[in-house]
């Protein structure tokens, strides 16, 4: 969520401190993992607030970013390479807007269900679903852009070799 390793370490530390300080407030109304995730999200949001980073609620974001999948002429039948490697996927995830990134990581990487994500992120189930889809589409765009970049870099080198 932060896109910065040192910051993520500090926040992990703060989140676990909060966990120990607030464990007595856990009433078992949701799964413990959901409660813990919610606590972590709150720690991150507090941090962003302190840094004065503008935050957009997930519901607002959902309405403001309705856009169809980009269609590029002449590129219709080119698929992503079958082997999307971990590094390029990791880099692409880092480029996602924070809201998309959080939902994508929770669902597709960590395996949370939409109803759990809705509780963690304080949004509706429908919103979680639509954000996830947009996150995947956005990731595809980033991955394709990076593949194109690599292909362009490789072409002059091949020409030189010939």
């Amino acid at each position: 969520m932060t896109g910065d390793t040192a910051e993520a370490e500090d926040l992990t530390q703060e989140a676990f401190l909060q966990l120990f300080r607030k464990i007595s407030t856990f009433r078992g109304e949701s799964a413990f993992s959901t409660w813990l995730h919610r606590l972590v999200v709150n720690v991150v949001l507090m941090h962003l607030r302190k840094k004065d980073i503008p935050r957009v609620s997930l519901d607002e974001m959902d309405n403001s970013q309705e856009e169809p999948v980009k269609r590029e002429y002449g590129d219709d039948d080119r698929r992503l390479l079958g082997s999307v490697d971990r590094i390029s996927l990791h880099n692409a995830i880092e480029e996602l807007p924070p809201g998309y990134r959080a939902i994508f990581v929770l669902h597709d990487v960590e395996g949370y269900e939409h109803n759990e994500i809705a509780q963690i992120m304080n949004c509706s189930v429908g919103n979680s679903k639509s954000q996830l889809h947009k996150a995947r589409v956005k990731l595809r765009e980033v991955l394709r852009r990076d593949e194109n970049k690599l292909a362009r870099q490789a072409t002059p080198a091949r020409r030189k070799a010939q």
Binding site: L80, V84, F104, D108, V109, E110, R140
Partner: peptide, 18 residues
């Protein structure tokens, strides 16, 4: 292509792990 790519992303992502 869109379907295949999104399906691929969905299948590869859990491998990232935590």
């Amino acid at each position: 292509c869109l379907l295949a790519d999104l399906d691929l992303i969905r299948k590869v992502s859990p491998e990232l792990g935590t």
